[in-house]
């Protein structure tokens, strides 16, 4: 199952590294990344595959919440389906 991770927050060193390490720990594979910094705001969208994750989906959400709190940014993960439903016929 694919999911979209969005990270939004004030730019600083180590956001990308933090998120990637957090994902590595729970064995979530990154498929695609797009990232920009606009007016000092860091915005990243990441497509990931959670099939091989070694924890439940709910625990992935919690792990990313915790990492977001540590980094001082907002991280959320949502199933890709919700975006596909809205933007793809």
């Amino acid at each position: 199952m694919n999911a979209v991770i969005t990270v939004v927050g004030k730019d600083k060193v180590g956001i990308m590294a933090g998120v990637c390490v957090a994902l590595q720990k729970i064995n979530v594979n990154i498929l695609d990344i797009s990232q920009t910094v606009m007016q000092n705001m860091f915005t990243m969208n990441m497509l990931v595959d959670v099939k091989q994750a070694n924890v439940s989906y709910s625990e992935i959400v919690d792990a990313l919440d915790a990492e977001g709190e540590r980094l001082g940014v907002n991280i959320r993960i949502q199933r890709e389906d919700i975006f596909d439903a809205m933007h793809r016929i």
Binding site: V4, T43, N45, L47, I82, F83, H87
Partner: peptide, 12 residues
């Protein structure tokens, strides 16, 4: 993949 605009539109 979905583009950034689409993802942000849904989040907004």
């Amino acid at each position: 993949m979905l583009n950034q605009h689409e993802i942000l539109e849904t989040l907004n």
